[in-house]
Amino acid sequence: MGSPPILAVLAVIVAKALVVIVVLLTAFAYMTWLERRLISRFQVRIGPNRVGPFGLMQPLADGIKLFFKEDFVPAGADKVLYYLAPGLAMVTAFTAFAVIPFGPPDVQLFGVPLFQISNPNAGILFVLAVTSIGIYGIILGGWSSNSKYSLLGALRSSAQLISYELGVGLAIVGVVLLAGTLQLPEIVKEQSGFFFGFLPRWNIFVQPLGFLLLLIGATAETNRPPFDLPESEQELVAGFHTEYGGMKFAAFFVAEYVNVITASGVATTLFLGGWQGPFVDQFPILGPLWFVVKIFAFAFFFIWIRATLPRIRYDQLMDVGWKLLVPLALLNLAITSVIVLIWPSLGGGS
């Protein structure tokens, strides 16, 4: 068998990319629906239930409405950056998802793995790098709007994001130490099998502290409550996107929700065995299904804590980030590196 025709390979890559983008956009739309319905239930309300059965057409109606809103540029705004910022936020949010495997890598068409956009050797570093670029979307949007609320929101947001990025970056090192690789499919593969015959060999049981730190950090990195200070509406109206409307406003929301999906995907891949689950070996198509189930669990968790926890103060936010997350992550790093040398077979890797 020779190498597959280059056009066929390209067609598979393009089709795969399109499917992932459409699925992410749909997932975004229905996460807004899920969030509104669940928050309503938590607050003993009913929530949107008029547009379609169970209000299922509500996201579509909202989307169509936003297309027909006025395309608005505030006076004194830097027009180029004002348009660039939401686009940048949305594109980087999509790009960060590119390296996350959502199914077994041996399902291939013309030699192209179907359940992952790309598998560069930088792996998890790629996610960290691209999500950092997403901060530019927020700070440019806040600065270019020529509004005091926007600028304050953007400043707070960028300080928050860079502070929590350290905790997240250090928490992930524990997993890299165990696996000895940055490539996400390899990390997933090393979590197959069981401890003591019944406990799945997931990293969450080896790295509970790392998982907790990543979860807190991811909540802050995606601007989700209780860390949603950039949009604290009582003091900053809407934070960095105060002056945005229509589809540019929606683009920031797409970015936020796609980032939540990516963060859940990273947490699932690194700590919960990724796409692994019962019967995946026999039916590889079940891989994406298990992946979606785990992502959904995270989405539910993020919505749940929004309904439960009040927003924290800014000084508390900085205290948690620098005085708790960073030292604990360093501690986790030191402990893990000792354990890896004493018990090298723990991570399963080479």
């Binding site: 890559i13 027909f68 790009t95 590119a98 390296v99 956009i117």
Partner: peptide
């Protein structure tokens, strides 16, 4: 693959934002 994916994502973003410019009132 990442580049192709990014180009498609940027294309959709551009279309969405500029469709709003065309369809919305000014």
């Amino acid at each position: 693959s990442i580049l192709i994916y990014m180009i498609l994502a940027s294309g959709i973003t551009l279309v969405v934002i500029f469709a709003n410019k065309l369809l919305g009132p000014s």
